[in-house]
Simulated scan of single mutants.
Amino acid sequence: MSHNTLTPLPSQLDKSAFVTAYGEIYEHSPWVAELAWEQGLNTDHDSPAGLAKAMGEVLTDASAEQQLAVIRAHPDLAGKAAVAGELTDDSTREQAGAGLDQCSPEEMARFERLNDAYKEKFGFPFVMAVKGNDRYAILNAFETRLENDPAEERRTAVEQINRIARFRLEARAEANA
């Protein structure tokens, strides 16, 4: 298998096996995988890009309430769940890759203040695809996105979640190459 192919092949799985294999790509939201499977998968969906597109369309086309449920399933960046070791394996790897596990006490306090302000304004946690970013870029994005209106920020969070999903699928394909 190449790094451009997922294992197991999504197009060859029944619904139950597909949801078992890919249901956690969207944090605690297996319904995204269920709907993607129900809409039909073919060999185009056996690549990370193809499956990410299909699953991303499910979330993008979902109701605002469904989108908010997926957004709210995400942990705070450098938040209490990370400190307590309660993140999913994917979230732990992603946050550590951005250096969020190496924050100084002052940086942790800043993350906590920004997490609180963000949740107070929008009613959901700040979500960002952190791959390729460091904690400084993430803190800057936090402050910039706090200026958004709620509808714009929900759309931005959905876009970021879809990026996270693609990164997760690419990582799985790489691991199985």
Rank of each mutant, 00 (worst) to 15 (best):
L100V: 06
N162I: 06
F126Q: 02
Q102K: 07
A69R: 13
A157G: 05
F111S: 08
Q67I: 03
R113A: 15
T20G: 09
I138Y: 00
A117T: 08
T20Q: 14
R168G: 10
D116L: 04
I25Y: 00
Q95T: 06
L9M: 11
A84F: 14
W31G: 02
I161W: 07
T7Y: 11
Q67P: 02
G23D: 08
E27G: 09
P10N: 07
M1E: 12
A21R: 08
M128P: 03
E86C: 08
T88I: 10
G56I: 05
I164E: 05
F126H: 06
E159V: 09
R154D: 07
L100N: 01
Y22W: 10
E174P: 06
A62G: 10
R113D: 13
D61E: 15
A21P: 13
Q67F: 11
L13E: 00
A78Y: 00
P75K: 05
S11C: 07
Y136C: 01
T156S: 06
N148G: 02
Q95V: 04
E147W: 09
E65G: 05
D101N: 11
P150F: 04
L139F: 04
A82F: 10
V83E: 08
M128L: 15
I71K: 04
D116I: 01
R163D: 03
S11N: 07
A171Y: 10
H74A: 11
A82K: 00
F126N: 05
E38W: 07
M55Y: 10
G79A: 01
D76E: 15
A171M: 07
A96N: 07
Q12A: 12
D89C: 07
I161P: 10
T88F: 13
L59R: 07
D61W: 13
A81E: 14
L51C: 06
H74Y: 10
S91Y: 05
F18V: 03
T43I: 12
V158S: 12
L139Q: 02
A49C: 02
M55S: 00
E107A: 12
